[in-house]
Write a protein that binds this DNA or RNA. Structure first.
Lengths: 334, 334
DNA sequence: CTGAAAGCGCTTACAG
DNA sequence: CTGAAAGCGCTTACAG
């Protein structure tokens, strides 16, 4: 069953492809096509259930009206929510989104960028993986519209949408201190990315100023072996450093697994150990006591990323800008 | 900065587009292109960093190597996880995925189907909304490869990947009865879709057989006003039907909000009210007591949907088949 | 006001 | 073994 094309319409009406195309694109004004003819064409278009082939249009125009979105893992609610907002905004602007998972692998990210380029996407919104600088550099060199979100490469002239990670963990650590904690641990990913480094810095500096910093209380965990690493880290903290009285979890995923471990060990929260997390989770509502957390403005991150990207597309030029959003510390009543 | 095309390669090598194309597609065997020439072409392809334009290829071939995935809301972990597996499988087969959110609106679903068709997707995997039959019918009429997942339209000859919802709630209800519950409530969406109807039927029949069915204990909630509806429903159950001793939550989202309401009202689970849910949630690990749940095999659903879709694409024909997966009841130790 | 033609970047018969 | 040509479905100058 062949689909009806512009040619079919043109033949049926007895007119040229060009005329049909003009009408379809609403360019019949400008003294181009007569009103009657336009009406007649629209009539036939409806009758024959014509639907344009956007692929053909894209090939011609060089614009696919498609954006590539790269996240680590779409099944993670943080990225799922980010994808949701990115998509909603882009939809309004007439763009479709191809979402792909890098699984935190730089080579995977490289492959997906290749793939998306060959599909002629008009721009990229990327949550970059560790060690992926080279792939991003290629995009910049090709002058392809690009926005990094959630993380960035510090020495690279990209448009970045980030939160103020340093400020966030400063406040979070401060809170634990204010509540009387003296031995505060940090559970964080072992990667070298700046967003993690900043979170760590906020923690370290705050504790150093308070003169209670102890580097043994920082436990780094690996993305690939997360569950066991966290279990091991929490066990260490509880058994070996018996006096730990606070833990800052550097991401939501780490927090959820970490809290699970604490609960398994029958640690009472916050009586024995007080905690602070990144991002809210339904899970927290199920705790007997409310948990303070750093609220990342995911919706705004998505919106801002889209806004900058669309600007870049319009101006045909990448922007080097750090859009830093504030992440507020939410402190539920006790 | 123009991208290099086949023509550029051809010119540089001093050969025709056709020859380059053949080499690029690995069709130089079949006694077509000489070994030396093939090597020379590949050389230049590398030098010039040639990347094929898949849009052009798609236009020519009529295959976009793209699949449209329609879910209600990608930020919901159920759909996020489904999307994850669907994408992983399709990626292996060389397909990209455009994910769109219907937001449970049939008109929205219709629009997205239109859009995806105009982008010449090769097939659809759809979590259909209520009242969307007409749009699906059009896809079938156009003979576009299509698989429905999670839900279906009963009178329609589509390929469906579902769980056995009836069996699932039968087992879940049975469990509550076995634990001694006599007054078991059901919290369920107020829509007319068969997957919900089946869940309800499993509940009703089991209770009827046990002679403890009371239709007043079924509370229907609306997707658009979920939070308040659930709060109200739970309050009713607890305050008005003071003897309710068990609740079956018909989806994970309903369960999470429902449990929140119960906890807010200081109901002790399972001492005062015993519950069963659909799907695991991190949240459950935070409850002082483990919660039994119906485990939907999301990974398998995704895989199976892709498998059937690829088959349809290959055979150029839609399949009318109900692939019903078993959802097991997981009963943690108490 | 409308048509004929060229072109977007590719692939695929068809000649030779 | 290789080239010239047509065509996928559209858009966009250019003529008239």
């Amino acid at each position: 069953m062949k689909r009806v094309s512009i040619k079919d319409i043109a033949q049926k009406v007895g007119v040229s492809n060009a005329t049909v195309s003009l009408v379809l694109n609403g360019k019949e004004k400008q003294g181009r096509v007569s009103k009657d003819m336009a009406e007649r064409i629209r009539q036939v278009v409806r009758e024959m259930h014509y639907q344009p082939n956007r692929l053909a249009r894209s090939l011609q125009s060089g614009k696919s009206q498609t954006i590539g979105l790269l996240v680590a893992d779409i099944s993670n609610p943080f990225f799922g929510t980010l994808a949701f907002y990115v998509q909603n905004e882009l939809e309004k602007a007439g763009y479709a989104v191809i979402i792909m998972n890098t699984n935190e692998s730089d080579t995977q990210m490289g492959k997906m960028i290749e793939l998306l380029r060959s599909r002629q996407v008009d721009g990229f919104i990327i949550v970059p993986t560790e060690f992926g600088e080279e792939y991003i550099r290629q995009l910049l060199e090709a002058n392809l519209p690009l926005v990094l979100v959630d993380r960035c490469y510090p020495d690279m002239e990209t448009a970045n949408v980030l939160i103020d990670n340093y400020q966030a963990t400063r406040e979070a650590t401060r809170l634990l201190l204010d509540k009387g904690c003296k031995r505060i641990a940090l559970l964080i990913y072992d990667n070298s990315q700046p967003h993690m480094a900043e979170r760590k810095r906020g923690y370290v500096e705050t504790l150093t100023q308070a003169k209670v910093y102890d580097k043994n209380l920082i436990k780094a965990v690996n993305y690939r072996t997360l569950e066991e690493d966290i279990q091991y880290a929490v066990t260490c903290l509880v058994k070996q450093e018996k006096d730990v009285d606070g833990i800052l979890f550097a991401t939501n995923t780490i927090a959820i697994m970490g809290i699970k471990s604490l609960l398994n060990m029958r640690i009472r929260i916050p009586d024995e150990i007080r905690i602070v997390c990144f991002d809210k989770s339904d899970a927290f509502d199920f705790m007997p006591v409310a948990i303070p957390y750093i609220h990342q403005p995911i919706a705004n991150m998505g919106r801002k990323a889209v806004e900058i990207l669309l600007e870049e597309i319009e101006n045909k030029a990448n922007k080097a800008v750090n859009c830093q959003l504030y992440a507020s510390l939410i402190q539920p009543m006790e």
